[in-house]
Structure formats: C-alpha cells, structure tokens
C-alpha cells in the first residue's frame, strides 16, 4: 500500500516538473514572439514613413488572396493538439524561370542558322510560350503579398514580412505548447483527485 502511494507521489512530482518545464518554454517562446512582432511593426512603420501614410494600409490588400501558409493540426492522445506550420514557398517560380531561360537560348541558336524571314516566324512562335508563362505567374495563386504594396517596395517592408513569417511559425509552436500545458494540468488534477479519494477512504474505515 505504501509502495503504491510513493509511486503515485513520484508520478505526480514528475508531472509537476513537466508542467513547470512547459510553462518555462512557453514564456521563452512568448518573449521571442513579442519581440518579433514588435520588430515587424517597426519595419512596417518605417516602410509607411518612406512610402507615404496611406500606402501601407487595408486599402492595398488584394481582392483575391490565397494562403501561402497552412497548419497541420493533429489530435494526439490525451486531447493534446499539435500544430505544424507548412509554408508553400514559391517553388513554382523556379521552373518557370528556367523555361524562360531555355527559350532565350534556343532563340539565339535559331537566329544564327536561319534566314531573316524564317527567323521572324520562329520568333513569333517562341514568344507565345513566354506570354503564357507570364500570364501563369500573375495568377493570384502564387502571388507574394509584398506585391500588393507595389513592385519596388522598400527593404523595411521585406524585413517586416520575414519577421511576421517567423512569428507565424512560432505561433504554431506556442499553440501546440499551450494545448500540451492544458492537457498536463488536466491530468495532474485527475491524479490529485484520485489521491484525495484514496486518502479519505481509510480514514472513514478507521472511524
């Protein structure tokens, strides 16, 4: 009986230590998140100063938006939710750039071999895929939100973007940690209640 109790106490102690560790990790991450957000705001404010007051506001938001970030949410045992941040980088842009480069190289090759008239025809044919790739890249799907605010945006806005990108990944980590903390707390409370009921039982018997 006493062995059981010692074991239970040890388990409760372990849980409490885990709980404290989780809280400490949360505070650390929170601190980092807050300073990153602050950094982002400073950069936005600087960009606004150089671009003009109304140039970085709600009015510039695109009419069509596609998310570039997703969180993979999964429910673990004990009701804990885990969030993993997945960023869809502009991977599609790279092959497109390559195709444009390839077309350019072929063109110069053809021009050297063919006569003037033929060269003009080939040029016409070759320009078509170029136009297509341009049209594809301008679809809202892979648009960088930075472009809402203009093509040549100040460096500060780019800094703000990278700060907020980090904030997003960090917020997913914090969300998982919060969920884990709540689950640990729930478990501890359950165990404590169990122990209390076990303690009271023998007292009643003795009486």
């Amino acid at each position: 009986m006493t062995d059981m109790r010692v074991d239970q106490h040890n388990r409760l102690d372990e849980q409490l230590l885990l709980f404290m560790d989780q809280l400490e990790a949360l505070e650390e991450k929170r601190h980092k998140l807050n300073s990153l957000i602050e950094e982002g705001w400073f950069s936005i404010a600087k960009a606004r100063y150089s671009m003009g007051n109304k140039q970085v506001s709600v009015l510039q938001y695109a009419s069509e938006m596609e998310p570039l970030v997703h969180v993979e949410a999964s429910l673990l045992a004990g009701g804990t939710a885990e969030f993993k941040c997945e960023r869809r980088e502009n991977k599609t842009e790279e092959p497109k750039n390559n195709t444009i480069e390839d077309i350019g190289a072929k063109e110069t090759g053809w021009r050297r071999i063919n006569t003037k008239q033929k060269g003009v025809k080939e040029e016409e044919q070759d320009t078509d895929p170029q136009v297509k790739t341009k049209a594809e890249s301008s679809t809202p799907e892979h648009r960088d939100p930075l472009k809402w605010f203009g093509i040549l945006v100040p460096q500060n806005l780019k800094q703000a973007q990278s700060a907020f990108k980090e904030v997003i990944t960090l917020s997913a980590e914090i969300a998982s940690l919060q969920s884990a903390i709540l689950a640990t707390r729930k478990e501890m409370q359950m165990k404590e209640k169990q122990e209390k009921t076990e303690k009271t039982k023998p007292e009643i018997k003795e009486e």
């Binding site: 705001w41 938001y61 949410a73 939100p145 806005l157 703000a160 973007q161 700060a163």
Partner: peptide, 26 residues
C-alpha cells in the same frame, strides 16, 4: 488533404503584418 488556416483578429498593422506573412485567404 490540405492543412488548416490561421485566422487573425487585430488592428490594422497586426493584420497587415500577418497577411504579408502569407496567411490571408478569401
């Protein structure tokens, strides 16, 4: 098969920042 979204309720600069980060969806 696609992940979930991140939603924001905040002031103008907070929303602008997070949308720059690429979370916005219509």
């Amino acid at each position: 098969g696609r992940g979930k979204l991140i939603a924001v309720i905040g002031d103008e600069d907070t929303c602008t920042g997070f949308l720059l980060g690429g979370i916005g969806e219509l």
